[in-house]
């Protein structure tokens, strides 16, 4: 079987996107979609310097612009059978528009757009099960990458389903030529989750995807009643920090379990904007900064002011 003839088209389409990252975890329900949404929100509300020191193909050229330019971010929901992104962004009711040149992503703000299969389902029955085998899922992902008119983006965040199967292989194959900056792995602290994340590390190595680092989510919980801290998902084997050390990958931070994050996602609100100073908010901003730094994204540091 020769190379897929669509790959050059995909590479062409994705060439207007500077950075592409995957959010992965072997395990379900650890917060891949939550983290994807939070990363997207965080980057979409930051800016980059107007005159980067040395980026010859930066497109901030020529304009008599302010000192910083807002970052533009796209979010691709690659979870076909369990899409969560539209709910988390309050974009559930928006249909995808198809034009002669491709599919238009859904814009939440001027700087943040997304696409998901949820927006292509009949609006009168959003709970339709998508009972698809691998080949069909691969086909849709190809269309997402080839046909969606992302335009010029600073970053594309790809939220993936749990496991190491068709979707992951498809993303790898289709995006290889366009280049993937790397993968952000998400885990919860307990061994049952880490077990699957180790398999995901193995997958990334076999598939040649660089690993940006690992985030430990739901790490500790502070009881609102007695403020005693407890580990809901106990890191009996050292948690993600130990896994990062063992596997030689970067540890991007530990985000405590905060019931308000889940609530913000249920209502489609931006947790970081609502509670920037909460413990989880501070931890998340640290993760965002770490990810930005590691992919070489030049962000104007708002925190410095």
């Amino acid at each position: 079987m020769g190379p897929d003839p669509d790959i050059p088209y995909i590479t062409e389409r994705l060439s207007s996107i500077k950075h592409k990252i995957l959010v992965l975890s072997g395990k379900g329900g650890v917060g891949k979609s939550t983290l994807s949404v939070l990363l997207s929100h965080a980057f979409a509300s930051s800016s980059r310097p107007a005159h980067p020191i040395s980026t010859p193909n930066g497109n901030g050229n020529g304009h008599t612009s302010p000192s910083s330019i807002p970052l533009t971010v796209g979010l691709l929901d690659a979870d076909i059978t369990g899409p969560s992104i539209p709910k988390m962004l309050s974009l559930e009711q928006e249909p995808v528009h198809v034009t002669s040149t491709g599919w238009s992503p859904l814009y939440l703000t001027d700087t943040l757009c997304a696409i998901s299969i949820q927006n292509m389902l009949p609006s009168n029955n959003p709970d339709t099960a998508i009972i698809w085998r691998g080949a069909k899922k691969t086909g849709l992902l190809k269309q997402f990458l080839r046909d969606v008119e992302w335009g010029d983006l600073d970053m594309l965040v790809v939220d993936t389903p749990p496991g190491t199967s068709d979707e992951h292989l498809a993303l790898c194959t289709f995006m290889r030529d366009a280049g993937i900056d790397g993968a952000v792995l998400v885990s919860t602290p307990q061994e049952v989750a880490l077990l699957d994340v180790r398999r995901q590390v193995d997958f990334c190595r076999k598939a040649g995807i660089p690993i940006i680092g690992i985030v430990e989510n739901m790490s500790g919980f502070v009881c609102p009643n007695c403020t005693g801290e407890s580990q809901i998902f106990r890191p009996t084997t050292g948690g993600a920090r130990k896994l990062a050390k063992d596997e030689g990958i970067a540890f991007l931070g530990a985000v405590p379990l905060d019931p308000r994050i889940g609530m913000a996602c249920d209502f489609g609100e931006d947790f970081l904007e609502a509670f920037p100073e909460s413990k989880a908010g501070v931890a998340l901003r640290g993760v965002v900064r770490e990810v930005g730094k590691r992919i070489g994204l030049d962000v104007v540091d708002d925190d410095a002011e």
Binding site: G29, T81, G82, S84, A129, G262
Partner: peptide, 21 residues
Amino acid sequence: TTPQAVAISDVKKELDFCRKT
């Protein structure tokens, strides 16, 4: 399922799957 809306919307799809099969 878990109680959050995000999980519920996925689990509704599973109920639809059961219905269809």
